[in-house]
């Protein structure tokens, strides 16, 4: 028996997985089962869209990947699921490898898009640090696929059911002591329609006020390349664009002093229009921009702000 099972610790991502499951189900004629662990509210939301199985078991801590994987392995066996869709956030990605190993399954993580043909699921994901896009498919009967958050829209409400499911999990050597929300910056650059991104070519911290004013005048958000956040610590990690940061699809991205290493560009190449300002006429970023300005960023920033105000 074959079927599709979905799980994410985050409700928003679980609802997106329903959409992906429906695409595969439509092609392959499989049943969809949504799993929710120790989260009644999530189970409620999922049950408006799919047949949902709610696990209540105090022995499973969401931070204990071994326990969650053990629970899902049993669930897959009980529900006859061979395709497991997970979210490729950090928890989901960690879970993917473990669950795949226990199911003897091939596994693909960070999947941006899928297409299902006669039961074969072709998955696209970035490879070689974002330099290439690999199209891959899992050859084993059991498959674990982790889908990038926000790659698909949430499924609309369309009816489902809510059921209870019991699993046994052994005592864990691991204890979650505390969970502390990351404070301060709650910006969502992935949701922004306009981004103004700062690279290492912006050398004075004093210029950030101008950058922020430009972003404000445009109704957009400020973002940055990784070193600006992790080395210079000018911004929180929330604002990093790139392979180890956010993948953004704004209508307009204005890139100031960004050289364009592939680890960065992978996070912005889906933007509709890219403007790049750089003083180096050979900067890689100029080859992937719609509007290219070879000029001193220091001088462009105040002029741009003035023109927009």
């Amino acid at each position: 028996m074959a079927g599709i099972m979905i799980y994410s610790d985050k409700t928003a991502y679980a609802l997106q997985l329903v959409t992906v499951a429906q695409m595969i189900a439509k092609d392959a004629g499989l049943a969809i089962k949504a799993i929710s662990i120790n989260d009644a509210e999530q189970a409620g939301e999922l049950s408006k869209r799919a047949d949902t199985y709610k696990i209540d078991n105090a022995a499973i801590q969401v931070g204990d990947t071994a326990a969650v994987a053990a629970a899902l392995k049993q669930t897959a066996a009980q529900l006859g699921a061979n395709i497991v869709l997970l979210s490729s956030n950090r928890r989901g990605k960690e879970l993917s490898g473990r669950l795949a190993q226990s199911l003897g399954a091939g596994c693909l993580t960070d999947v941006n898009s899928i297409s299902s043909n006669a039961g074969k699921i072709e998955c696209s994901r970035n490879a070689l640090g974002g330099a290439t896009v690999a199209v891959q498919q899992i050859e084993t009967e059991n498959q674990v696929i982790a889908i990038m958050p926000k790659a698909y829209e949430a499924a609309p409400e369309a009816g489902g059911s809510l059921n209870d499911l019991a699993v046994d999990v052994k005592a864990s050597p691991l204890k979650v002591l505390s969970v502390n929300p990351k404070g301060g910056d709650s910006v969502d650059i992935e949701a922004a329609d306009i981004l103004v991104a700062v690279g290492q070519g912006v050398e004075n911290k004093d210029d950030l006020a101008t950058v922020e004013a430009i972003a404000k005048a445009l109704g957009g958000e400020v973002a940055c390349s990784k070193p600006v956040a992790t080395d210079k610590k000018w911004f929180s990690e929330e604002r990093i664009i790139g392979l180890s940061g956010k993948k953004c699809k704004p209508s307009l991205a204005i890139l100031l002093g960004i050289s364009g290493q592939v680890q960065f560009t992978v996070g912005i190449r889906d933007a509709k229009t890219i403007v790049a300002v750089n003083n180096d006429e050979n900067a890689d970023i100029l080859k992937m921009a719609d509007y290219v300005m070879v000029a001193d960023v220091e001088e462009v920033m105040p002029a741009l702000l003035k023109a927009l105000s």
């Binding site: 399954a105 091939g106 596994c107 693909l108 072709e122 490879a127 070689l128 330099a131 290439t132 896009v133 690999a134 199209v135 891959q136 498919q137 899992i138 050859e139 084993t140 190449r269 890219i274 403007v275 100029l286 080859k287 992937m288 921009a289 719609d290 509007y291 290219v292 300005m293 070879v294 462009v300 002029a303 741009l304 023109a307």
Partner: peptide, 25 residues
Amino acid sequence: IVATLSNLAPESARKGIAVKSVDEL
């Protein structure tokens, strides 16, 4: 257990229009 069907650099169809001034941009 995983087959790679293709592994290519994404095609970029950017305009690459050079602008000389902020006003023009």
